[in-house]
Amino acid sequence: MASGRSDATTDADALLAQLRAFEGRPSGPPAEARDEVNQAMIRHWVDAMGDDNPVYVDEESARANGFPGVVAPPTMLQAWIMRGYLSQPDGAWKAQRDASGEASAQEQLFDALNAAGFTSVVATNCDQEYVRPIVLGDRLTVTSVIDSVSPEKHTGLGDGHFVTTRLEFTDQHGERVATMRFRILRFRPQSSRPKDVALRPRPAITHDIAFFFEGARNGTLLIQRCAQCGVLRHPPRPACASCGSFEWDTVTASGRGTVYSFVVVHHPQVAAFDYPLPIAVVELEEGTRLVGDLIGIDPADVEIGMPVVAEMVAVDDELTIPMFRPAVPVGAGRVGAVTGDA
């Protein structure tokens, strides 16, 4: 058991090194828009979206609002480039072979993930940065690069790697007009888990605490702060015991902290959790403490004072909560000894 864990850790490290070698490589060849930015496609888009902003369809309104002419809705960015799946007989990725016919970097990366069992995919988020408005007559080209591959993460869907692709959009003059980062999760499907899996208890979300769980969903660990005297407090509450103020805001925690105390829950067991279950009270470097599950560590290796880092984990479709992982990998020096015992 213990030696199996060590082997798994080594395999994961080797895979990560293999995956990270793709970072910075073009995903595939550049793609050119088949049509220039045109009013007809914009009309279809704004009709479908129900967006009645006149700057997308009316020259006069666009100029009155400081634009050189009719502009395309910014979020249409990718629509100028995308091709329908069926228009590429060999599938989207097969189409992206370079001149020599070799598989694209993206295809090779996905082959490696598939081979390691991360066969399922879900798009997780997309960020767009706009340099200038896109106007009628622009002709866009996109080049895409594999921006980053995350270490293996534990998510509500299953264990997997986040893959971020960076797409640079340029115009007919070769000038950059926008950048998009598109992130997917390639994960190992959880065949063993029953469909009607028991969910973890739902927090009662009130006005006083909603920010914390919204922050977690957005990947940030937030701490409530008194807007008057600046005292940080957790758990959140409506008023400051130090100065009496009811005004508050939040600060984003670094996520770094140490284990203040911990338990390992064994028995009896309820369906929503995996056991043995290590849970810690973590003291954040900002000074407040909070409860969070410990991940990426054998319960026997947990110690008070151990440095940990927060990770926001979606435990199901509705709930994302902070968990904590050792800041320094634990147990690496013990592999030989543990194997010897086994």
Partner: peptide
């Protein structure tokens, strides 16, 4: 684990601290 928690439970129950003994 499906009953609606009182507010303070938000900081322990979703993490698996379900019982007084924990």
């Amino acid at each position: 684990t499906s009953v609606q928690l009182r507010v303070p439970g938000a900081w322990t129950r979703p993490f698996g601290m379900l019982r007084p003994v924990d």
